[in-house]
């Protein structure tokens, strides 16, 4: 119906919003606003609670601003030796693990992006298959045990250093970012593939290296499963396993002060606020880095999204 659409066109070409559209816009703002509040407020509450007086938290006086500001919580947390050990271990695992991840994922992604690599298709299929079918917990455990890695810190670095998903992202990046002509020119000049990779490809792939490094680092930093399964020595525990003990299996701390009921009460209260503090302490590195790194994560999703 060309005539009706033309008539409507002349009406709505004016910048005026129709009333239903205006209502719609307002609804969009309200829904998004509420959504942001639901996401952000609990995090904000944790921050204010961690520096507030326990009694004030319990009576709901810290909903908007902290009350009875003190740093007892943090003092108590930093006196907890296990947190420091956990921090140190996690930092080591994360640094080494990220380096190893890059060493495995980036070259593999590049090799698989080459159409002239015989067998690339089959290798890719074999890799993707592992995303959907695995031997399961026990068969994997037996292999790791067979390698002599159980209760060795190395297990925390090695396990998880290859993720097929990351390799797919890397491959997509190289397919669309390294022009075929460049490779042909390099080959004509007698440049080997390895040389081409190290001196041409790597300098052009800062973006994907950043994305993969951050994906891996967050994975190692937040990793909990492998430590639970393969480590039993406290001294090797990463931060996540330590804070799991402190956050979810706590109460142990309070019982250390025996005798005086007042002291016990105070210790119990402190144990409560410590939970807030611990949440903050182990998220701090992420919270600080978050504004700077989030665009890389988004970029990673985009690159991955191309392939679906």
């Amino acid at each position: 119906m060309p005539q009706t659409s033309a008539a409507v066109a002349s009406k709505s070409n004016r910048v005026h919003l129709t009333r239903s559209d205006l209502i719609f816009d307002i609804c969009v703002y309200i829904i998004l606003g509420i959504f942001s509040l639901i996401v952000a407020y609990p995090l904000y509450f944790v921050v204010t609670a961690s520096i507030s007086d326990p009694v004030a938290i319990n009576s709901g006086q810290t909903l908007l601003l902290p009350k009875g500001v003190n740093l007892d919580t943090y003092r108590a947390i930093f006196n907890e030796k296990r947190i420091w050990t956990g921090y140190r271990n996690t930092i080591i695992y994360t640094l080494l693990g990220t380096a190893l991840s890059l060493f495995c994922k980036i070259p593999a992604g590049y090799a698989l992006s080459r159409k002239d690599l015989p067998g690339a298709g089959i290798i890719m299929k074999l890799m993707v298959f592992t995303m959907y079918f695995s031997g399961g917990l026990i068969p994997t455990y037996l292999v790791v045990k067979g390698l002599g890695l159980v209760n060795k810190p190395a297990v925390m670095v090695i396990l998880g250093c290859v993720s097929v998903y990351d390799i797919i992202i890397t491959r997509s990046f190289f397919v669309s970012n390294i022009p075929q002509e460049m490779l042909e020119a390099a080959h004509l000049d007698g440049c080997s593939n390895l040389h081409f990779f190290t001196s041409i490809v790597i300098p052009l792939s800062g973006a994907i290296i950043a994305v993969i490094a951050l994906y891996s680092a967050v994975g190692y930093w937040n990793g909990f499963f492998n430590a639970l399964i393969y480590l039993s020595k406290q001294e090797y525990f990463p931060l996540q396993l330590i804070i799991r003990d402190l956050l979810l299996v706590s109460q142990a701390m309070a019982s250390s002060t025996d005798g005086d009921p007042h002291a016990v009460q105070a210790a119990l209260r402190l144990a409560e606020t410590m939970k807030y503090g611990i949440i903050i302490v182990c998220s701090v590195p992420m919270l600080i880095l978050y504004p700077f790194i989030q665009r890389f994560f988004v970029k990673g999703v985009m690159i991955g999204g191309i392939k679906g």
Binding site: C104, P107, R114, D116, I167
Partner: peptide, 26 residues
């Protein structure tokens, strides 16, 4: 011409074989 590309693939492939396919055998 491209045998060296397999070297680039080697670390990831080793991992996949040892930690995914050996468990499948197990």
């Amino acid at each position: 011409r491209n045998w060296d590309l397999y070297l680039l693939l080697l670390p990831a492939l080793l991992y996949i074989v040892i930690l995914h396919y050996v468990p499948l055998y197990g």
